[in-house]
Design a protein around this nucleic acid. Structure first.
Lengths: 263, 263
DNA sequence: CAGTGGTCTAGACCACTCC
DNA sequence: GAGTGGTCTAGACCACTGG
C-alpha cells in the first residue's frame, strides 16, 4: 500500500519540491494530468482494478500521487471520455465493462429499420485453431503463421439470420477458448473475452463495403445468391492500442441498417 | 457593448449576490457553465461571430458574464469537443468552419483502399425546386409539399466516378442556390452553404445499407447493373439540432471503403 | 513584450448515494 | 452523517503566438 512508484515529472508547480526522481535521463515530458492518466491506465491494464469494480476516490488518488484533486479529476475526465471508466455521482468511479451497461450499441451498429433493438441470438458454426493468414497476421501485428483462434458464427435477430461473421483472435491470448465455452456463454462475446481472458476491447476501426452474397453465405442467411450485403471488417484494440481481434461480418440490410453518427 | 443580457441562474456560488433576475418563474436550472455554453452557442448561431473568426478571449468572456475564467473555460471545452469552436494556444478561440482545416474527413468517410485521400471533383447533373416528398419532409421537419431544392451530382476520385448523390435542402433557407453557383464554386459544398447561406452543418446521422445498382446509376458510374453499392442516407443538423439537409449517396466500393471509428 | 490558451493548486459548497 | 463526484472561484505560472 505504502509503496507508491511516483516518478512524476515535476512541471514547475507551486507544490513543494517533492519531485525527487533524479533518475539519470529525464523521461517523457507531458502535463501532470497526462502522467496521472497514464498511471491510472496502467493500473487498469494490469488488472489491479477489474472491470466493474470501484477505483479509488479522487481525493485518495490525489493523496497517493501528491497532486491536487483537480489534476486527478482532469485525468479521470479524459479516461471517462474514452470509455475506460464510468463516473457515478455519489458512488464513485468504476472500471468500464462490457457486461451490464447499454454499451452493446457501441460495438454493434446494426439496427432494425423499424421497431426496437434486437433480440439477438448466436449460432456458433465453427471454432478452430489455425496458422494466421498473412493478412490477419499483419492486422493483429503478429507473425504470419502464428496460432490464431478462428470462429465462425451466425447471428439472428428475432429469429431471422442477419449476420454471418468470421473472427480471428491471437492464439496466445485465448488459450482455453472452445466452442462449448462460446455456446454456453450468455451475453455479448466481448463480455466473455473480458472476464474469462482478461482482454477488454477499448476501441475499433471498421472498413465498410457493399459486396455480393456468395453461395455458402446465401445459404446461411436464407437469401438468394448475389444479394447485396454489407461487409464490415473490424480490427479491435485493447489497452496500449494493441490489436487483438480481426473480424469480418456480412450484414443483411434488407430490413436493418448500419447506424452511424458524424459528430 | 455595455448591455449584457445576463440572466444566469445564480447557483449558490460564493460570488456576490449578483444573481438578480427575480423574473416571475425561475427558468431552466443547470450548471453555470452550461448556461454560459448556451449563451456562446446563441452568439454563434446568430452570426455575431462568423465561421473562421476569433471569438472573445476567456478572460473577456469571464468579465462579460461575471463568472470566473475556469467556468468559461469549461463551457468552451465542451464547445470545442463538439467541433463548434477550435482552440489555438497563444492565438485564441475561433469559430469552426468547413473551409480550410482537414475537417472534410469528418463528413466524407469514403477512403481509397490504397494510396492517399482523394482528388475529388464534382459533376452537377441537376438542380431544381420541387415540392418535398413526404419522407424528405418528415426528415427535414417541414410540411409535405413545402419547397425544397433538389440536387443530383456525381463525384469522381482521380477521374473515376465513385459516388452518385441526391440532396434535398429546405427551399426557404437556400433561396439563391443555382446550378451555376454550385458548379463554379471551388471546395466542399458545405463551405458554400456556410458562407453563402449562413448555414453550418454541425453533426449528421447516417444509415448505411448495401443495395444493387439500378440502370441509370450503373450508367453514371460506368459499372454493370446490379453491382453492389453502399447506400448512405444522411440527415445533417445545424445549431439547435435543426435538420437542414437530407442526402442519399450511392458509393462504389470496389476500390474504396467507408472508414469508421468505434470509440 | 503583452495577450492567449493550458496547467495546477487550494479551498468552498452542492447534489447525490448509502448507511 | 460521511463519502463520492460535480461545480465554482481565485490566483499562480507555463507555453505559445505575434508585434
Amino acid at each position: 500500500m505504502s509503496s507508491i512508484p511516483s516518478n512524476l515529472t515535476s512541471n514547475a508547480t507551486p507544490a513543494a519540491g517533492a519531485g525527487a526522481s533524479a533518475s539519470g535521463v529525464s523521461p517523457t515530458f507531458s502535463p501532470l494530468y497526462q502522467q496521472i492518466k497514464a498511471l491510472i491506465t496502467q493500473s487498469l491494464q494490469s488488472g489491479e482494478w477489474k472491470p466493474g469494480e470501484l477505483i479509488p476516490s479522487e481525493v485518495e488518488l490525489a493523496n497517493r500521487f501528491k497532486v491536487s484533486q483537480g489534476t486527478v479529476r482532469k485525468a479521470i475526465d479524459e479516461l471517462a471520455a474514452e470509455n475506460l471508466v464510468v463516473r457515478r455521482q455519489g458512488k464513485g468511479t468504476f472500471v468500464a465493462t462490457h457486461h451490464e451497461e447499454r454499451a452493446q450499441f457501441r460495438f454493434l451498429r446494426l439496427m432494425p429499420d423499424a421497431g426496437d433493438p434486437h433480440n439477438a441470438d448466436n449460432n456458433i458454426l465453427e471454432v478452430k485453431r489455425l496458422r494466421a493468414p498473412a493478412e490477419v497476421a499483419r492486422l493483429l501485428d503478429i507473425k504470419s503463421g502464428d496460432s490464431v483462434v478462428f470462429i465462425k458464427r451466425v447471428q439472428s435477430f428475432d429469429g431471422e439470420p442477419i449476420i454471418v461473421e468470421e473472427l480471428w483472435l491471437p492464439g496466445v491470448m485465448f488459450k482455453g477458448l472452445t466452442a462449448e465455452r462460446l455456446v454456453e456463454y450468455k451475453g455479448p462475446m466481448y463480455g466473455l473475452f473480458e472476464t474469462e481472458f482478461g482482454t477488454r476491447m477499448i476501441r475499433a476501426t471498421e472498413k465498410i463495403r457493399a459486396v455480393s452474397a456468395d453461395e455458402p453465405t446465401a445459404e446461411l442467411l436464407k437469401i438468394a445468391v448475389h444479394t447485396p450485403l454489407l461487409s464490415v471488417e473490424r480490427v479491435s484494440f485493447t489497452y496500449g492500442d494493441k490489436p487483438v481481434e480481426v473480424r469480418r461480418g456480412l450484414y443483411l440490410t434488407d430490413h436493418h441498417h448500419y447506424q452511424n453518427e458524424l459528430s
